[in-house]
Write a protein that binds this DNA or RNA. Structure first.
Lengths: 228, 228
DNA sequence: TTGTCAACTGTCAGTGACTGACATTAGCCT
DNA sequence: AGGCTAATGTCAGTCACTGACAGTTGACAA
């Protein structure tokens, strides 16, 4: 078989998404997440063993730990995806956009993409039930808080970068991100408290809350004055 | 056995500091904390096993878990004591005192009492080294954040109580406590970053920081107006 | 003093999270 | 076809943590 590929930028003429191996891995991972959330939300997080999750997907416990560093990680897999989506969206915002505008446009875009990206493996309704489990499990609350702080730090760094500021000497990126995150957290909790789990509802809610915040922070940061 | 206790308000007429049993328990507990912190700060938290701690005090592992629900708890034992001290001090502040004043006087008093109460079993220098370990151990960071949130909630509840407010409808207690806690956290981190671990240094630092905050919140809450 | 009771502790066995080592399987590529 | 290697399974072992049971020891009354 002397097959010549000449001008072929994608060596394996595989379907849109990688080879069989890749697809299998993605399927296993998705199945693990799905089964885990299903079990967590029905029996509780502590009452669910890793063995149960692995058995449900018919893989060994060892394989589970090759996909997730620990039991907590699978619980936050969806959140992780959402945040990554958001962070990517933020990074793609045009440089001219004021920081706050970039942040709120990024969340809006993220919520859109999420419905399709996540919705396939984990129905939104399950995601929301999992949110409740996290909020009512001390071990997961702790992890959730740590993750939030870590995300805020990354956001502050990104904002500082795009504005050409020094994070150590200029407090404004952190302050902005803290305020922004506070609003996001509040609207997230409200979303969890309500029954409505459509991505449209959460987006509308978030925007409404951010509208209260924006006026107070609308000044353009690139006016030269470093401090009021 | 028909035992009648007549008028005896304190069934066991124990000496000022409890019986021998009590003292023994306190000694064991103090020894466990001391050894644990010593090991955590020299080898790291994850690298230290509960068996090591128990062996160092010459008790069984099972006994360790009768004193502390888990490995984390012994790591936060000192913080726990400090917070309890602070909380007690707050509760004893006169009712007429404005909330913010009560909070800052309570911290001041707490820092005083701490030096003697804690200093006996755990030298301040060890306490500070442990603070660093907490700040650099992901598992402990998570727990620390959860504990902070829990403390804030209790503080907000206490403030709402003493002002006769409803925590669910009036946001001011939470806002005040959030601001106060933020300042405490910042000054705490600075204290950790510096070398100086005297209780006087941290108290001065805290007060200086709180001075920036107070002016903006000095209004008396009992003027009748619920919202600005 | 002595005996009883209850608290404290130790021992043991077991579960569950997690890891390293090694053998086996199964896509991938020539 | 056959070799390479990533993915998986198996096994043994560590560590945090728990329930059950037995032994020890302060506390307290007779």
């Amino acid at each position: 078989m002397t097959r010549q590929r000449l001008a072929d930028p994608t060596p394996p003429p595989a379907p849109p998404e990688g080879g069989l191996r890749e697809r299998k891995k993605r399927r296993t991972r998705a199945a693990l997440i799905h089964s885990a959330l299903e079990l967590f939300t029905t029996q509780g997080y502590e009452q669910t063993t890793v063995d149960e999750i692995a058995d449900a997907v018919e893989v060994s416990q060892r394989t589970f730990f090759r996909y997730f560093a620990n039991k907590e990680e699978v619980a936050f897999a969806v959140q992780e995806a959402v945040e990554a989506q958001f962070f990517d969206a933020l990074r793609e915002r045009p440089a001219g956009e004021p920081p706050m505008t970039a942040l709120r446009r990024a969340v809006s875009l993220a919520w859109d993409t999420i419905e399709q990206a996540i919705g396939e493996t984990v129905p939104p309704e399950l995601h929301m039930r999992m949110y409740h489990v996290i909020e009512s499990t001390p071990a997961l609350i702790a992890v959730h808080l740590r993750r939030s702080v870590e995300l805020e730090e990354r956001l502050a760094r990104e904002i500082a970068d795009r504005e050409g500021l020094d994070l150590d000497s200029d407090p404004r990126p952190r302050v902005l991100v803290a305020a922004f995150s506070g609003v996001i957290r509040v609207s997230g909790r409200l979303w969890g408290a309500r029954g409505d789990c459509s991505s449209d509802a959460i987006r509308k809610l978030t925007e409404a809350y951010l509208d209260h915040l924006t006026p107070a922070l609308a000044e353009d940061w690139n006016t030269g004055s470093t401090h009021a």
